[in-house]
Computed example of a mutant assay.
Amino acid sequence: MRSLLSKATLAAVLLVPTLAFAQDAEPANTPTETAAAPAPAAAPAVQNTLIAPAPADKGQIVFFRESKMMGAAIGFKVREGETELGKLRSGKYFVATVEPGTHEYVVHGETKDKLTMEIEPGETYYVLGSLGMGLVAGRPNLSPSDEGTFMGMSKKLKLAK
């Protein structure tokens, strides 16, 4: 009896969505109307008051790191060649103004990570710094990001000194 009830329940669970789908389907030879769906309401953009526009003749890069408890005590330096641009700690950001052209940014920790970017004059770029798991210390990582991600985290970010 229990087996019969289980089979009936299973058949109902599988059959009901199939029947509902079949009722919603239109016959193949029936013309369909196409109406433009209303555009979804755009989410109000958060005004970026933290980052000034880039100078017209230079580019700028906003390096930022999410505020997290894991790895909060570990910071890493962002360098271009031998020049230290800034230090990223949990919940911090800094802005580097650079000449247009190709640039390679490096972070060191237990491992080394490089990010190569092509910088255009008057443009602002965003780079997310993160910390992965390592054997002894964290593994720093730099990855391209966008203004929306930065602004989403901005309430918890502070300018690095």
Rank of each mutant, 00 (worst) to 15 (best):
M133A: 13
E33M: 08
T149K: 06
V98A: 02
L4K: 02
K156C: 04
K112T: 15
K114Y: 00
Q23A: 07
G75Q: 14
A96G: 01
T34W: 01
V136R: 03
A52Y: 04
V13G: 08
S6K: 13
S3A: 15
G91V: 03
S130I: 03
L19N: 03
I74Y: 04
L14V: 13
A160S: 15
A11H: 02
P44I: 04
T18I: 15
T32G: 07
F94R: 13
D113K: 11
T111H: 07
I51Q: 02
A43G: 13
A96T: 04
G91A: 05
M133C: 01
A42W: 01
K156H: 15
E147D: 10
P55A: 09
K77N: 11
S154A: 15
L14Q: 05
N48Y: 08
S90V: 01
L157Q: 04
K77W: 00
L50T: 09
P27K: 03
I51C: 01
V46F: 07
A52P: 12
L115K: 00
P144R: 10
G81V: 05
T32M: 08
V107N: 03
V13T: 12
K87D: 05
S67M: 13
A160H: 07
T49L: 07
S130N: 09
F63Q: 12
K112S: 08
A52M: 12
A72C: 01
G109C: 07
Y126W: 14
L4I: 10
G86L: 07
G122I: 01
K77A: 13
A73G: 14
S154P: 12
L88Y: 02
Q47H: 09
M151D: 03
P31T: 10
Y125H: 09
A28T: 08
G134W: 03
G129P: 14
K68A: 09
A28K: 11
A36Q: 06
A35E: 04
G122W: 02
L85Q: 06
E33Y: 05
